[in-house]
């Protein structure tokens, strides 16, 4: 698959205050349009930092020390606050590991879908709920109207993660960032959510950047796999190549550990 990169990390270094080792070091990674790129690695290897960086939402104390992150060819750090807000949720959406993170526990879900819609489109409540309902019915919710009347704490983890996916995809973003989207869920639900992810990607043509420590998930969904260790990108290539002929010892060990389980 060749084509343009929707997101491009160019020699990026990220440091956290108080830590000597950078969370990412001179890292270059393309994220091609309409494809699934998976970043695998152990926890603490700097995977999530890359996603937060792309969103312009690095945790407190985090700082981009070097390099550029290009979204659609434009450098993200030069965007105005307004432009950044428009892109977040609009052109680039994010799903978190904790499925509750997307929603305010004190507001009904329907209101939160409307709020997200209105932040990006000129439309009323009706249009917002229609758009949300359309996406959600494709995500296994037979009655989105019922969902809209509920609070996040009334849903199970799987339901909530599907709702979060719906929220993220409602604006038809060009890129969906997924931070360990299945690891807080139990195995059956994991497979279900992974299936929906694949489905959404294929239907909407949204590029996915998937961060996971689960090599199985990365292999199942990814067109490309990037392997990270301690802030360094140690191996990158098409999924086939990484799985069948890994070059690095670390990658080999990762692959072996999947078979052991």
């Amino acid at each position: 698959m060749s084509g343009r990169n929707i997101l491009f990390y160019d020699q990026v270094t990220v440091r956290y205050r108080g830590r000597t080792e950078p969370a990412a070091y001179k890292l270059t990674l393309p994220v091609p349009e309409k494809a699934v790129t998976a970043i695998v690695g152990e926890s603490g290897s700097g995977k999530s930092t890359l996603l937060r960086l792309a969103m312009g939402l690095l945790p407190t104390g985090g700082e981009q020390a070097e390099g550029r992150v290009l979204f659609n060819g434009e450098e993200i750090s030069t965007f105005s606050k307004k432009r950044l807000r428009e892109i977040r949720g609009g052109e680039m959406a994010m799903v978190f590991q904790d499925p509750g993170a997307c929603f305010d526990p004190r507001r009904k879900l329907g209101m939160q879908f409307v709020e997200s819609y209105k932040a990006h489109r000129a439309g009323g409540k009706r249009e917002a709920l229609d758009a949300a309902g359309g996406i959600l019915s494709g995500l296994g919710f037979s009655d989105p109207g019922d969902l809209f009347r509920r609070y996040s704490f009334e849903l199970s983890g799987g339901q909530l993660q599907r709702a979060a996916l719906g929220m993220a995809m409602m604006m038809k973003p060009k890129l969906l960032l997924c931070d360990e989207p299945t690891s807080a869920l139990d195995p059956v639900v994991q497979a279900e959510v992974a299936g929906y992810l694949k489905d959404l990607h294929q239907k909407a043509g949204t590029a996915l950047l998937l961060v996971t420590h689960n090599l199985g998930l990365a292999a199942a969904l990814g067109d490309y796999i990037a392997v990270m260790e301690k802030g360094h990108l140690i191996e990158y290539g098409p999924t086939e190549q990484i799985i069948h002929s890994p070059q690095e010892g670390y990658t080999k060990r990762l692959i072996e550990s999947v078979w052991e389980v």
Partner: peptide, 9 residues
């Protein structure tokens, strides 16, 4: 949820 809200724009 605060980060979530920001990520939603």
């Amino acid at each position: 949820y605060y980060i979530g809200l920001k990520a939603r724009g």
